[in-house]
Design a binder for these strands. Structure first.
Lengths: 225, 225
DNA sequence: CTAGAGAATATCGTATACGGTTTACGATTG
DNA sequence: CAATCGTAAACCGTATACGATATTCTCTAG
């Protein structure tokens, strides 16, 4: 009598306290509620979740490895500050990886994928809630890389994107930010339809570096470094 | 009276217990003393260092974020297994990033850098201690990317390399592995001297993917996945 | 009123402790 | 004898506790 294995909630994969806290802090950095340079008090977070510091520290250690926070011995954890040149370099790595991904993807790209990408593109264009733009933007991008069948490449891109998330949200919210993104998305899609590998790669590269440029132009940075 | 801030050993960053354990376990995975799939018992490591489990767990959490180990809730931590396709994808990302890095580097490459690279190249060729090959190989590669002045790109390459470290050591130890690497290093160096950006990029890409191929050919993998 | 010493406070890093889950294994039953 | 069950041991995740370090406050000397 095999029990209905399908609909049983999988207890084995229940997230641990540190998993939940990890996601919470990562999101808080992404949406700007934790600004760069801002300290993260372990006891505060622990109290917030009614847990001890230990799962909090474990979550923070993972975020440290992801580059989102920094530990300062005996002084505490702060959200990593990103200087302009660093920001440009992170965008550049993203551009390198994403343009490679789309080049690998196009030769295998199915009609169905093109249709889904168009769908995401239009959902993005229609969405009025600023908070969701970045998420829909990612759906469009990652959809295009799916047929490359390179999960590791995509997850690497994802992790670079995580570092940029807070800035991407700002960039899209800039005047024209979303409109320009939408226009460029459609051009990229056209190149994919035409199976023009080189053009698509170049467009993706420029799409990303363009976002970087407009961000740097509009960010009045008063930071120390 | 600004003291030489550059060369003062930064006491503020004295390594914590978890830092030391992190390096220890990472090295153990790199040199093969911890094989893939092998469990890492928190209490054992703690006893080894005469500390509690807590710094051990924090180190493991960082290694989890680096992709070197996996937590299985209530069952323990194991060294991440890498399937053949995954391995190929990691090598490919490395090839993409390193070929881009050298292309960005060559236009700014100084004579001094070329001289240093040649030095590393020859030290690598002369070295007889298998254990040091991989380290010297990295010195040669990273030296070539220095003039790109892209620290983030180089650190991204470094982190991809960390995932491959255990396999790179195997690859270099294969018959002819080191000799082929040496020959290709010299070709790459020639292209750099000639400032031939495209050729250098292609050579680096092929150098890395070639290592990947020879590794996959010679790895008799009996793993489940 | 200011600079500096010293005490009080906040926060950190880690040890110890413990309940909960998984694993190993011998007992039990069909 | 094989399969299942029950129990004990091993191991994990997290709470509590505490010494160490950093920071802030207070008080005093100049």
């Amino acid at each position: 009598m095999p029990l209905e294995t399908a609909k049983v909630p999988n207890l084995g994969k229940a997230p641990s306290a540190s998993d939940i806290i990890l996601t919470f802090i990562r999101d808080a950095i992404a949406d700007g509620s934790l600004d760069q340079g801002e300290p993260i008090r372990q006891d505060d977070v622990a109290r917030l979740f009614n847990v001890s510091k230990i799962p909090v520290r474990e979550a923070l250690k993972r975020l440290e490895a992801e580059g989102l926070v920094e530990f300062h011995r005996n002084r505490g954890v702060v959200v990593t500050s990103v200087s302009d040149p660093e920001l440009a370099q992170i965008f550049e790595v993203r551009a390198i990886l994403e343009s490679s991904a789309i080049k690998l993807s196009i030769p295998n790209m199915r009609e169905k994928t093109l249709a889904r990408a168009l769908e995401f593109c239009e959902t993005f264009a229609r969405e009025t809630d600023v908070a969701r733009w970045s998420e829909l933007n990612w759906q469009f991008h990652s959809c295009l890389y799916e047929d490359a069948e390179r999960p590791f490449l995509v997850s690497t891109i994802r992790s670079v994107n995580d570092r940029l998330e807070r800035f991407l949200r700002i960039q899209l919210a800039l005047s024209q930010g979303k409109e320009i993104a939408d226009r460029e998305h459609r051009e990229i899609l056209d190149a994919c339809r035409a199976r023009d590998v080189e053009r698509a790669g170049t467009l993706v590269f420029e799409h990303i570096m363009g976002a970087c440029r407009s961000l740097l132009e509009h960010l009045p940075r008063i930071r120390t470094r």
